[in-house]
Write a protein that binds this DNA or RNA. Structure first.
Lengths: 123, 123
DNA sequence: TTACTACTTGGAGTTTGCTCAAAGTCAAGC
DNA sequence: GCTTGACTTTGAGCAAACTCCAAGTAGTAA
């Protein structure tokens, strides 16, 4: 799969894909004889992993660190778990804050709607 | 309430509070005769509002726009509601992505734990 | 009055995460 | 063989959200 196909599939730019590879958010991608990226199934899986975690707000440095540990093999299971657990906690905290904000937005929306319905809007 | 007390209360820096005021994320704060900020109850409520929405990831520009509309009075209920609803949708989407990521982390953590328990770790 | 500290402002600097540009390389079609 | 277009690299540039700094002022304590 070419870089173009991958970025169309996931709606990201080729620059971002190359950037992720450069900083280790995904491992080095398979290349053709000519040096052109040719994403394998496994490469794609790494891309999906990276996008999922990035969309959830995990810093690229943390994801890169996880990938680095993963590629070091079986000795790093404990470190990997510790990293993952720490990120899980961060994410959980973030989720709670977002639920708070959602409630706050809902209350505000409700108040706006009441004002609009009661004809208050625009005097 | 002085700026120092406010930033201790909410664990943010005075620079951030001044920055929020400057860009309109909170309205202009009450001052003493000498020009020093003296946060009123209402000012504090605005600070809490700003922090809640910021912690949930809303851009400062959007929060500032809401504050601007709010201060324009009753004519802006419809615009305010539209802004809030749009942000609510963003937030909802983000929440779903984070839940996905949480599941992904949990699966990874589980796999690490199994490897660790089965003595695979460290050979 | 004189220190001293905490505040003030405006503006520059930092970090994160991309994003773009320049210059060169590769592969396919004519 | 030559052109074309998509790829390659390196490095600079950019936006968001702070964060820090310098220079000045305000209020208190001795």
């Amino acid at each position: 799969m070419t870089i173009k196909e991958v970025c169309q599939k996931y709606d990201i730019t080729a620059d971002t894909l190359r950037y992720y590879e450069k900083i280790g958010v995904i491992p080095e991608v398979t290349r053709t004889a000519g040096g052109i990226r040719d994403y394998s199934e496994e490469d794609i899986t790494w891309v999906e992993n990276a996008l999922c975690l990035r969309n959830a707000g995990l810093p690229v440095g943390v994801i890169a660190e996880y990938v680095r540990l993963y590629r070091m093999g079986d000795e790093t299971f404990v470190q990997r778990r510790d990293l993952l657990v720490a990120q899980r906690e961060e994410l959980q905290k973030q989720l709670e804050q977002m639920e708070d904000a959602l409630k706050r937005l809902d209350r505000k929306i409700e108040r706006c709607n009441q004002a609009i319905e009661s004809g208050k809007c625009g005097r």
